[in-house]
Design a protein around this nucleic acid. Structure first.
Lengths: 262, 262
DNA sequence: TAGTGGTCTAGACCACTTC
DNA sequence: AAGTGGTCTAGACCACTAA
């Protein structure tokens, strides 16, 4: 026998999935459910808290509890990095960081700050630098419309980007073609990359920034970008709301027996 | 000001991370903390529940609350599919589904059941079949030692595997080289694949099976495996404890302007 | 039987929003 | 001021484990 709060949460979740409670709609007030005999206030509240941790609803004091709009899952494939998009295209800004969704870019969908700092441990390791070596950090919060989707922090080695518009501290997108185009213009054409993904609980800051429910999880993505000769020209950390994305990768089955020896 | 239960949870989490409470060790009993003035039983319990949802501890009635052993993060890269391992090697079983960890395979680290069934929607879509078409499902629970790490369900088209040892309902691994070797022997050499990842809350069944804490998340991985001519020979769904794995993918930056036209 | 975590209640009070 | 969700308490009781 599942606990009462779990049963209530499941019942409400079911009604949300069937559309009986539509996106944006208010769930019954806690005190109403108490009066309706669903249990004490604590019990009903526990159910609501579970729904929030599952990303189904958001609660706020004074307002109430509303069913969260479930934006369609974004599918991120490697074609989002297509050279043609940032090298030849004339689309504005950070295309590679967005999903090719057919929507045209809106101003204000990205905020960015650039700063020079001592490399954190992970960054230093990615660039094979000493831990106190200077790097540029470009922090962005990417939105789609008014809804934040993920954060992305790119790190660069000073000698790769000094003097480019990437380190111009003016807020706003990096300009036509985004960061990869800037690197390309500076003589560093990106060639291959590695992405590493892991999931973890969101920090309180991330919960606020990405408008998550308490207890929701995020996926942290580490991207290391190389030129053809193996130089690391960008290391980036993305933090994505775990429920809102899916990643897909296509690759050939490796065969170490057929690799050409060096 | 964070709530009392959150502050207590953070304090305990900090002590776990610094090793003051070591893996396998018991946390103070709830009633002891109540007596120590950390709050009422409900408050302390809320803190413990948060720690459990974050994967730091496991609680059980009658026993107590112990710090969960944090196995080193498994890094899954595409080299785990190396043809040399399952085609030429003489290692036993399902190498492709395990991490190359240097440990030798132990018997009993995998349980499997094979059944013939009507294709569920996702599976039918992956194979481009009708929804009621028959497929073989091979369900496995993969363990490392006594600790379950993930589940993996592989689906096959009957005409690809009928008569092979893959559909032999005898429990146990699929034999030398695992499923890919069986397909290879049957004339279907795997060539490339697609993996798609997304995170979600664990179902109660998964929570029990994978020994998760209540409220922990899982990563669901969908693997579609193709032969060189584009035939889908396997579709597999893996469910992994989100905290215990990291996935990494290496790939070349695509350039649609340079693709050879067909 | 004793001790553990888990559930549930009734009620007080707090923080925040809207009117 | 009224109404919302959120926190906290004290205590009763339940489910499970071990000796």
């Amino acid at each position: 026998m599942a606990p009462k709060w779990r049963e209530l949460a499941d019942k409400l979740a079911e009604r949300i999935r069937t559309g009986e409670y539509a996106a944006g709609q208010q769930l019954p007030h806690i005190r109403d459910l108490v009066e309706a005999g669903e249990g004490s206030k604590s019990t009903v509240h526990a159910a609501y808290k579970a729904l929030e941790a599952e990303g189904l609803v958001t609660s706020s004091r004074g307002h109430g509890t509303v069913v969260r709009r479930q934006p369609p899952l974004k599918r991120l494939g490697i074609t989002r990095y297509d050279k043609a998009k940032w090298r030849d295209g004339d689309e504005v800004a950070f295309i590679a960081d967005r999903v090719a969704s057919g929507r045209t870019h809106q101003r204000g969908e990205q905020t960015q700050t650039v700063s020079r700092m001592a490399a954190p441990a992970i960054v230093a390791s990615a660039f094979d630098l000493a831990e106190d070596a200077p790097v540029y950090a470009r922090v962005r919060l990417i939105k789609e419309g008014s809804r934040p989707t993920h954060t992305l922090t790119s790190y660069y080695r000073p000698e790769h980007v000094e003097g480019t518009r990437l380190v111009d501290p003016t807020p706003g997108p990096a300009g036509r073609g985004g960061g990869f185009r800037v690197l390309y213009d500076a003589g560093y054409e990106i060639d291959h990359m590695r992405e590493e993904l892991r999931a973890r609980v969101a920090t309180p800051e991330e919960t606020a920034l990405l408008q998550l429910g308490a207890g929701e999880w995020v996926v942290e993505l580490h991207r290391t970008v190389y030129t053809a000769d193996g130089t690391v020209v960008e290391f980036a950390v993305g933090v994505h709301a775990a429920t809102r994305f899916a990643w897909s990768y296509d690759f050939a089955v490796p065969d170490s027996a057929q690799e050409d020896p060096r």
